[in-house]
Design a protein around this nucleic acid. Structure first.
Length: 337
DNA sequence: AAACGTAGCAACCGCCGCCCA
DNA sequence: TTGGGCGGCGGTTGCTACGTT
């Protein structure tokens, strides 16, 4: 069986577009519009697949496209929306005028993911790595916890070493958290520099740092209940001698600035954590079935629930009550615009 | 200066859902 | 009701520029 290819691959050109091709496509679309992508290359005199033309137009040639770096607010929007809808790039791009899904996806994969990881936040679940570990650890018996700690150490060793010793963190940990929409607690004394340098000479610190990480990780795993609440975000001080790693197990606190994850949004499951399963079931918030669908319409003008709402989350529609909490406009919460 | 590694971006691929005959 | 065509989407790949050793 198999699907019929969208065009005869033998006769179509692939790879980079030339300026001539761009001109042909642009001028054809300017005259005739984008009605039938299959016919466009033929009529425009291009030896390209219709799909390729569509992609070139939507991702590059469209006059309303914004080229260049993403602004802080754009990044913030991406992070916000990603935490809700996951990898629904087109949906996210819809909220960023002039940006395409490809742009957003690339920016996420090349920049934002690393930024979040560097902040100790899992870009998939938007939870602090340490909190994830602590959460898992609470379900395990002590011997398993020890194994988990070892395994985690193995998994994250490279990243941690990179972060802690190899190079400077070239984005401001605390402020970047705010910039990305996370509500970041104030930095620890002396740790409020815009660029944080951790460690000086990697070689003589590696072993020592590893030992510290090991110790803190084990402690965090074994004593999740003793973790202080509302303690400062501590990743920036991971190179210090304090129990910063354990403190990092504590997620962000709630405040009025920016968007935030909050217990009220997702139903606190009684562990004192603002994080709940509904937020953390996977990259695309897939709880299964249709749960990852955005509401087609959350509310109409009268505040009356309209039909077609497809909730994200488990019990309640997070969009219904949390627009304000997330600091998102109604437009953002209603992707069908 | 050359080799190698990495990051960023553009483009491709294949699947999916909608529309229409 | 069904099946084909088409556009849209997300994941992945490949190329290029830049940085590091």
């Amino acid at each position: 069986m198999g699907r019929i290819p969208c065009c005869e691959k033998d006769n179509v050109k692939r790879g980079q577009w030339t300026p001539e091709e761009d001109n042909k496509l642009s001028s054809y679309i300017a005259q005739h519009g984008t009605r039938n992508w299959r016919l466009i290359p033929k009529n425009a005199g291009l030896q390209r697949c219709g799909k390729s033309c569509r992609l070139r137009w939507t991702n590059y040639l469209r006059p309303d496209l914004k080229h260049g770096d993403f602004s802080e607010s754009e990044e913030k929007t991406i992070v916000k929306l990603h935490s809700v809808v996951g990898n629904r790039w087109s949906l996210i791009a819809n909220q960023l005028p002039g940006r395409t899904d490809n742009d957003v996806k690339n920016h996420w994969n090349t920049k934002l993911k690393k930024k979040l990881s560097g902040m100790g936040i899992d870009p998939v679940t938007h939870k602090p790595f340490s909190h994830l570990m602590a959460e898992i650890a609470t379900t395990l018996a002590p011997p398993q916890v020890a194994h988990l700690a070892e395994a985690a150490l193995g998994c994250f060793k490279d990243e941690m070493l990179h972060l802690l010793t190899k190079s400077r963190i070239d984005f401001p940990l605390h402020r970047s958290g705010v910039a990305l929409g996370y509500d970041m607690p104030p930095p620890p004394p002396g740790g409020n520099t815009a660029t944080v340098y951790i460690g000086s000479k990697p070689d003589d610190k590696d072993d020592n740092t590893l030992q510290k990480i090991k110790f803190r990780l084990s402690r965090a795993m074994q004593e999740p209940d003793t973790l202080p609440s509302n303690t400062p975000w501590a990743m920036a001080s991971a190179g210090e001698t304090s129990d910063s790693f354990a403190r990092a197990c504590n997620p962000f606190s709630a405040s009025a600035s920016g968007f935030q994850y909050g217990p009220s949004s997702f139903g606190n499951e009684g562990d004192g954590s603002p994080w709940t399963q509904s937020m953390c079931t996977g990259s695309t918030c897939t709880g299964g079935g249709q749960q990852d669908r955005l509401p087609e319409k959350v509310e109409d003008g009268d505040g009356e629930e309209a039909e077609g709402g497809k909730a994200i989350g488990t019990e309640s529609n997070v969009f219904n009550s949390d627009c304000v909490l997330w600091g998102l406009s109604d437009d953002l919460m209603n992707p069908v615009v």
